[in-house]
Structures are given as structure tokens and as C-alpha cells.
């Protein structure tokens, strides 16, 4: 569905530190092999809440792991950005809501701007306020994100008019 949740730069599910969400009866942790320690730290905080952990290798395993979980399970993801997007998308496809997800990404996040001149998203530096699109248009990176367009709005501007050369 076009308005299904997506993982993007400012997703509400993103966190700097994983912490147990209350009101869930079980935890299901999916992590990259390299970040097993993060998963173990979370498990230590879960006390009596039962948990399962899956080391991410491929989307098919993730799907099977998610489908097997019961209602009332909270999903925790610890992975690099690309893997986290794959796991997140698979979870959403299987009906998991953002309330049932918590995501910690390791390393660089990815951010995309959607050019309002050529209608194409492109990856940008996460700190960039102004960028030039491949089509040549200069863009101010706006605060609005579109799930349909898969990027933050890029308002076209004339550099000379704004004193940017």
C-alpha cells in the first residue's frame, strides 16, 4: 500500500539506543552478525520477557521468522542502514506496525531528496541543506517527506537569486 510505513531518515521507529517497549509479551530481535552484542545488551534488559533472536542473512528467513511470531511481539532491529530497510520493509509487508517496531541503525544513515523539477529521488549528504540534482536543478532540502516519492522535498531555486554561487 502506498501509505505503508517506510524506514527513512527521521522515522519514528529509529532510536539511538534500543530499550524494551512496554506492553509487549515477547521480543523478537533481528540483527546483523556484526551487532550481536547490541542484541545481547537488549536481552539483558528484557528480564522475564521471552525473546527470540535472528541473525540477518536473507529476507526469506526474516519473513519466516516474523510470520512465526505471535500477537503481542515487539520487533527490534539492529543493522546497517540497507539491511535495516530490508528487514523493516519485510516486517511491514507482514503486517507489523510502527508501534511494534524499534530500529537502531549502525553507521551512516541514508537520506534522499526528491527533485521537484525532474521528479527523481537521489541520495544526499544527511547534513546538506542545499544540493544540485543530476538534472542540473539547485534544490533547497525541505522538511517534508513523501512515502510515495521516497524522499524529502527538494524546492528548486536559482543560486544567483539566493546569493549561492
Amino acid at each position: 500500500m502506498y501509505n505503508s510505513p517506510v524506514l527513512f531518515f527521521e522515522s519514528v521507529t529509529l532510536t539511538e539506543k534500543l530499550s524494551p517497549k512496554t506492553h509487549f509479551v515477547k521480543a523478537a530481535i533481528i540483527c546483523d552478525e556484526a551487532y550481536k552484542e547490541e542484541a545481547q545488551q537488549l536481552q539483558a534488559q528484557l528480564y522475564d520477557t521471552p525473546s527470540d533472536t535472528l541473525i540477518f542473512e536473507n529476507p526469506a528467513d526474516v519473513r519466516k521468522f516474523i510470520v512465526e511470531q505471535k500477537m503481542g511481539t515487539c520487533f527490534y532491529i539492529v543493522a546497517n542502514w540497507d539491511d535495516a530497510v530490508t528487514i523493516f520493509s519485510t516486517a511491514v509487508e507482514e503486517g507489523v506496525s510502527e508501534e511494534e517496531l524499534q530500529v537502531k541503525t549502525i553507521g551512516e544513515k541514508r537520506k534522499y531528496v526528491y527533485c521537484m523539477k525532474c521528479f527523481t529521488p537521489s541520495e544526499i549528504d544527511t547534513q546538506a541543506k542545499q544540493v544540485q540534482c543530476g538534472c542540473g536543478a539547485h534544490l533547497n532540502v525541505g522538511p517534508f517527506y513523501s512515502k510515495v516519492r521516497k524522499g524529502y522535498i527538494g524546492y528548486p531555486f536559482v543560486p544567483e537569486a539566493e546569493g549561492v554561487m
Binding site: 521537484m116 523539477k117 522535498i153 528548486p156 531555486f157 537569486a161
Partner: peptide
Amino acid sequence: NYETMDVWEP
């Protein structure tokens, strides 16, 4: 509209 912001803004 947003598509022509570079035209109408100046």
C-alpha cells in the same frame, strides 16, 4: 506550486 518555485520566488 513547488515545481516552479525557482521562477516565481525571485
